[in-house]
Each structure stands twice: as C-alpha cells, then as structure tokens.
Write a protein that binds this DNA or RNA. Structure first.
Lengths: 201, 201
DNA sequence: CAACAAACGCAACTGGAGTTTCATTTGAGC
DNA sequence: GCTCAAATGAAACTCCAGTTGCGTTTGTTG
C-alpha cells in the first residue's frame, strides 16, 4: 500500500519529502525538539497534510521504521558462529551510535511504551529482523558448531539484548568491546545448551 | 534532601500526596494519558505547586524513581548461583508485569530517551541496583561456583538484559520461563569465562 | 480533453499545557 | 505569640500542538 498512487505523483512525492524532513529534524533536534510544524515547513507542505496522513509524530516515525525494515540487511557469513555474531553485534552498536540511524529506532521504542500502534510496528519490525538473523545460527548448528536443538532466535536475542539494555536502561557507554562480549556470551550460552527450543529444566 | 522540612510539614505532606497521585494516575491512565492538571486535582493541590517543584511530569516520575531506589531490595542467597540469579530474574519479571510498579520505571525509560535529566536519574538508579545485586555473584566466585576474575556486574547485566529487551524492544511476552533462561544463559556465559573483567581476546 | 474524486493548501479556530502575578497561608525561629 | 521568609493557592494569561472548513490543485478515468 506504499505505492497505491504512481511513484511520481504528488502524493508519493510529498510522502518522500515529509519523511526526509522527519529524518533531518530527528537528527538535528532529536525527538523531543521535533515539531510537526517544522517538519511540514521543511518539506514544503502544509501541516494539515501531515496531520491528515500520519496523525502525529508517532505515526511518522512508525512509517520511517517501515522504510527501514524494507531495506535488506546483509547477513555475515564468515564460517564461524562467533565471528558472525560479533559482526552482527557490531552492526547493532554502529546503528545505535549513529544519530541519524538510531533516532527513528529509539523514537519508536519510546513511542511504543505509550502507543499500541507503535508497539505493534516495533514488534513486527524486530520479529522480522531477528528471524532473518537467525539463519546465521541455523547454519552454525548445521555445521555442528552449536548443539542440535539450539533455539536460533533465542541466540540472536542474547546478542542484541545486552546492547539495547545498555542503550535504553542503564545508559552505559556502548562500543565494540560490548559487541564482542555480547557475542561471546551468546555463544557460550548456546554451547552450554542454555538456548534450546525445549529447555531441560 | 528529601526531608529538608519536617516530615509532618505541609511541604512533605503535599509531596507525598502528589507522588501518590502520580502513582495512581500512571496506573489508571498510563503515562500518555497522565496530565499535571489531574494529578494536582487528585492530590488536592494547585497545579502551580506541581510545576514549581517538579517542573514537569518527567520530574515527577524521576522523583518517583528516587523513592523506589530508596526502598531496599532483598538479595536471594540460596547457596547456588543459578538459583539466586533465577530468583533475581523472577523479581525483574514480576516488576515489569505489575502495572503499578512498572509504570514509573518504563515512564522514566521513555523519558530518558529524550531528557538528559531522566537519563541521568535512570543511569544512577540502575548502577546502584546492579552494583548491589553483583554481591550475589561475588559470593558465588568465592564459593568457587564461577571462575575467578568473573565480572560480577557483567553477569547481572546478562540476567536483566534479555528481560528488558523483550519488554522494551521486541515486545515479546515475559514470564518465568524467560527468567529461567536468562539466568541459565548468564551462568553459562560466566562459567565459560565470557564475563571477565579482563576479556581474553 | 472533460469530469470528478481525492489530496492538498491556507487561514481561522480550539483546547490544554505551562507561565506569571499577587494575595494568602504555613511553620520555623525568637 | 509575634515576625518573616518560603511555600502555596487562585486566576488570568500566553503559546503552540492539533482541528476544522472551504476553496484549489492534482491526476486519474472514460
């Protein structure tokens, strides 16, 4: 439904202009300092149009997130699970450290705490991402690097969790060392059978 | 500075009434539906007073978080690291599942994404909590259940991370099974030496 | 190219969050 | 129990996000 009208039509052109403006405003002023008025002005569009089509800033960032999920992300494949997971973790760290890339993500995370629509969009977004990355773990299981019965999705969660935990909860700094440890911990847990589809408790 | 004036004075009485009102409003209407006007009305206080003393809703929830950190939390001590960490994880799950308890926490997390003051308060809050819980891991190292050189704080992070990750990022359901796996993964990582103060990379 | 529905732009309007001003109350100190 | 600074209450005010109404533009259909 992103392309109901012709890509060159005014509707599509305005949509692109507005989303670009949101990206720019988020990067410059942050989520708190971003107003619909300025976005509309920057996009050369009446603010009425923005409110009619997106309803609010939350609607805008949700739409922005949808664009992100459309962009395919390459999956590392070095032949070694831990290397692959480390690359994956480094990608997450890089994403969260870049103001332009992280702004829409953290904005939706904040919005998801209040708004069910944002919550749903975020859940769908990460479900797809994690499912995609899980293939990396499946390959490792096939290679015998991880025990059979390993829950691939759970391993991916274990990689991302410590990084987002720092970014959102503790506010501790994030760097490649964090990515390194997250990958190492995930692999260790998986090797020990702590990430299986049927827990042995 | 919480008790500058006498505990029975009007100032302290108003503070308690307002914070109680915030708790109640958060539980009923959620963070998005909470307004300063209703809080003031509920507390039997002029809204001017609220704005003067707390500045905004964010200031209120930050203050609420401060109250939470003042309440001491008991540390499990079963003699087994994994049991202890599992109890700890269950406590986090219980906190996030209870609307009344979780509301101020998630509210500050959302606020911390935008507001530096909330960010600082949240960072301090969790730094203290994690440091406190880390004693549990230190004891386990002394008992020889975990390798020497284990970073106790990092182990605690590994327990909390998957739970908050689900709550804030992926939106996946949270239950005791999640707590169980988080503790198991953290112990596995620690046993494998993936959570040491001096990483072996 | 004529017709028409949908999307848009513009300006005026609305409502509520947050501020300011000043009179009043509280409670600590003497 | 008197004094005074600080905190509070009440009401009027400002400002801006979000809405509404209506005329205009766009682009699709036949």
């Amino acid at each position: 439904m992103a392309g109901t009208a012709r890509p060159g039509g005014r509707t599509a052109r305005n949509r692109a202009a507005v989303l670009d403006a949101v990206r720019a405003e988020l990067a410059e002023a942050g989520y708190a300092g971003t107003t619909v008025d300025r976005i509309a002005q920057r996009a050369g569009v009446a603010k009425t149009t923005v409110y009619r089509r997106w309803g609010s800033i939350e609607g805008l960032v949700v739409d922005l997130l949808g664009e992100l999920s459309a962009a395919a992300i390459p999956l590392p494949d070095t032949g070694d699970v831990e290397s692959d997971l480390r690359d994956l973790a480094r990608g997450i760290v890089a994403l969260l450290q870049d103001p332009v890339d992280s702004a829409p993500v953290t904005a939706v995370i904040a919005a998801a705490i209040h708004t069910p629509a944002a919550r749903q969009a975020l859940t769908d977004f990460y479900a797809a991402r994690i499912r995609h990355a899980a293939h990396l773990v499946d390959r490792a299981v096939e290679r015998g690097q991880l025990p059979a019965g390993t829950d691939a999705v759970e391993v991916i969660r274990l990689v991302g969790a410590p990084i987002y935990y720092r970014a959102l909860v503790t506010g501790e700094p994030i760097d490649d060392a964090v990515a390194h440890r997250a990958a190492a911990a995930a692999v260790a847990a998986a090797r020990a059978g702590a990430a299986t589809t049927t827990p042995d408790h």
